[in-house]
Amino acid sequence: MALLDVQSLSVDFRTANGQFRAVDRVDVSVEEGDVLAIVGESGSGKSVSMLALMGLLPWTADITSDCMRFDGTDLATADAETRRRLVGRDVAMIFQEPMSSLNPCFTIGFQIREALKEHLDLSRSERQRRAIELLEQVGLPEPEKRLRAFPHQLSGGMSQRVMIAMAIACKPKLLIADEPTTALDVTIQAQILELLLDLQKETGMALVLITHDMGVVAETAQRVSVQYAGQKVEEQGVQALFAEPRHPYTSALLAALPERATTRHLPTIPGVVPGQFDRPSGCLFSPRCPHADERCGREQPTPADASLGHARCHYPLMAGVPRREAS
């Protein structure tokens, strides 16, 4: 059985202008030891779906799903206490802005020990020892000294290491990293990604990496799920996705990468991601899709089978050409 099994997860926000569907019937399935990347542009719902899972969304969010199971526990029906025991211990999350995720009023040591105190049955000295061990594990020099430091005394890369130390403090089975390196410089990004992958291999935990950077996806993930405007439009193994994207959006996104450019002009995707009031009734990508026809504007596509990358498209791409047979 999968470690995390989410089926048909939808999140609606109650806004002043009515309902807004941020996540639309998304399936996520993560096995033990998996490295799954969720990639998408801003507003694609990639963070919101994971926050829904963690129970971190505000009260204005309505979460519905057919199934939301983590390691045998049904998260949708679990009471607050069960959820609190799980979140932070078995499922941990790190965020984009390490500087603002740490509490500026408390030392690093206090914040790491707090996570340990909350979830594990350790004595004070054992917690201190474990905190030192954790900082060593994430590669921070002079751990005893660092434990007494306040967040403002650390650089961005060091803060992210501290966040990772807190997240892995209770040996989680699943670590969700939400754009963990977006705020960092490239040389530091390389260090942090390497650290995350090393920890993943060492502990066998599953890793879900939310990112918008195709380079990061290519270098870290085993499986990739592509989201667009709240829907999952494609899911494939990383090699297959880059070699043969099935959904026109994925294909267009890859073509827009400057490093794949062959001419001075980059291929573009015309238009913008649909917002709250201009969601098309058919396929959400149809207004921007080069292959769309009148059926795409009318009828919502359903995900194709695994051999076609679960592409949510009427005409999944075969060798770059849409497959248009009588259906």
Binding site: S155, T187, Q189, Q191, E219
Partner: peptide, 25 residues
Amino acid sequence: EALLSATPVADPTHQSTRIRLTGEL
């Protein structure tokens, strides 16, 4: 050289020979 090698390449078949930069700025 290190900066170039640290930049992720959007190609999963690419063999990266990453030069590890230790430490921070």
